[in-house]
């Protein structure tokens, strides 16, 4: 299936949970925040939230800033 990941089309086999998506991307879930279809997820919701075809996912972390 194709989702929009951080603004770009991204192919991944699914549906899958946000936790599974992060594992597939090799991203440490403790270091990021995730927005799923414009809703910011609590970290405790990563296992339950299902990403489906056409969904919008934003994965952010902290970078240097002032």
């Amino acid at each position: 299936m194709t989702i929009t990941l951080n603004g770009d089309p991204f192919d991944v086999s699914g549906p899958l949970t946000v936790s599974q998506l992060l594992v597939a991307l090799d991203i440490d879930a403790r270091r990021v925040a995730v927005e799923h279809n414009l809703v910011v997820l609590k970290r405790t919701a990563f296992d339950a939230a299902i990403v489906r075809e056409g969904d919008q996912v934003e994965i952010v972390n902290f970078v240097g800033g002032g």
Binding site: L5, N6, G7, D8, F10, L25, D26, I27, D28, R31, V32, A33, E58, I59, V60, N61, F62, V63, G64, G65, G66
Partner: peptide, 19 residues
């Protein structure tokens, strides 16, 4: 200390984390 919130670089995961 202040930090900024930005998209994770999906194609390049090699970068060290600020934290």
């Amino acid at each position: 200390v202040t930090v900024a919130v930005r998209r994770v670089n999906i194609s390049d995961r090699s970068k060290e984390s600020l934290l």
